[in-house]
Computed example of a mutant assay.
Amino acid sequence: MGRPSTTAAAPAALVPRHVVPLGGRGPEDVVADSRGRVLTGLEDGRIVRVEGLSDPARAEVRVVAETGGRPLGLEPLPDDALLVCDAERGLLRIGLDDGVVRVLADRVAGEPLRFCSNVVALSDGTVYFTVSSRSHPLAQWIGDLVEHTGTGRLLRLAPGETEPEVLLEGLQFANGLVPSADESFLVVAETGAFRLTRYWLTGPRAGQAETFLDDLPGQPDNLWRAPGGPIRVALAGPRVAALELLHRRGPTVRRAAARIAVRAPFRPPGTVGALAVDDEGRVLHHLEGRRARFRMVTSVCEAEGRLILGSIWERGLAVCDLPGEPH
C-alpha cells in the first residue's frame, strides 16, 4: 500500500479536566485492563492500579507490585498477570494477585537486555516487545533521539522460550507497540523518525516491514487500543526543525551533539498530542494541547468514558474528555 500521512484538518483541543496525583513520578505507560481499571508504572519501580479517575474526589491509587527497576510499557494478561518492560531488568511477568515478579528475559543474542520499551501479547501466547536503544540507557534517552542511532529493535518471545528472537533492527527509537485487530500485523512507533511502522505476522508479506503512517505531527511514543477500538498514539512532543536538520548531518556531528544534550537541563515543550488511527493507517482524529500544563504525554488509553494520559515527566495522570464530548 501507499504511505499514508497525517495531513488533515486542524487538530481539536486536548485539555485535561483534572489530574489525579499518584504519589510518585513518571507514569510513562498507562493501560486499562479488561475491567476498565488503569495500571501504570512509576519511576521508583512501583506498579499502581488506579480506579475512579473520572471523579478526582473518589480516585483510589493502590500499589500492586514493585519491579525493583524502572517499569515502562505494560500489558495486562487475562489471568490477572501483567507483562512489564523494565528499562533496567528486562522483560518481566508480575502476578497482580500476589505481586510476585518473574524475569522472562534479560538477555538477547548474548547481550544484556536494556531499555525495553513496550510489550504486547497475542492470543496464541506469543509476546512481542521493543527495545528503544542499544546505545543509550533510559536516563540518556534524549541522547539517542539527538544522535539518531537507529539501534532500536522489535523482538519476539515464543511461549515457553527464554531467549528472545530479533525480528527487526535499525529502528529509530522503537517505542510503542500494538497489534492489528485481526493480529495479522504489528504497529511499532519509531519516535526518532516521526512514523509508525508495520510488521507483518501473517500472509504473503509475513516477516516484512513497511511504513504504516509517515510524517507524524509529533514524536510518537506509546500505543494502545481497546478491543474493537482504534489505535491510540501518544505524541510526546512536537517536531523540532533544528533536530531534523541535525539528523541529516554525519554521525560524528550527531554524536557530539548527543553528548551535549544528555548534560543539558531539559524541560519538555508545552505542545502535546494524541492521534486515533485505524488499521488502514487513516487518522480518525488528532488532538493537540499547546502551552499545556501536563507535559510530555507518553501514553494514552481509554477508561471510564475518558481519555487517560500518562507522562514520564509528570506526577499524576491527566483525565480528558473523549473526542466529540463537551469540555
Rank of each mutant, 00 (worst) to 15 (best):
G2C: 09
S5K: 04
A9F: 02
A10Q: 10
P11F: 00
A12F: 07
L14H: 01
E28D: 15
V30S: 03
R35D: 13
E43H: 11
S54K: 10
A57P: 06
A59Q: 04
T67H: 06
R70F: 07
G73I: 02
A81T: 13
V84G: 12
E88F: 14
R89G: 05
I94H: 05
G99V: 10
A105D: 14
D106K: 10
R107K: 11
P112S: 10
P112Q: 08
F115W: 14
N118I: 01
V119L: 15
G125F: 05
V127L: 13
Y128F: 15
W141N: 07
H148M: 10
T149G: 11
A158T: 10
P164G: 07
G170S: 03
A174L: 06
S180W: 07
E183K: 11
V188G: 03
F194V: 08
T202I: 07
A206N: 08
G207P: 11
E210V: 04
L213T: 01
D215I: 04
G218K: 02
D221L: 06
W224C: 04
A226S: 15
A226W: 06
P227H: 09
R248T: 15
G250F: 09
T252R: 12
R255M: 08
R263G: 13
R263H: 13
R263T: 13
P265T: 01
F266Y: 13
T271W: 03
A276V: 04
V277T: 02
E280I: 03
G281N: 01
R290D: 12
R293I: 08
R295V: 03
T298V: 04
A303M: 06
S311V: 02
E314H: 07
H327S: 13
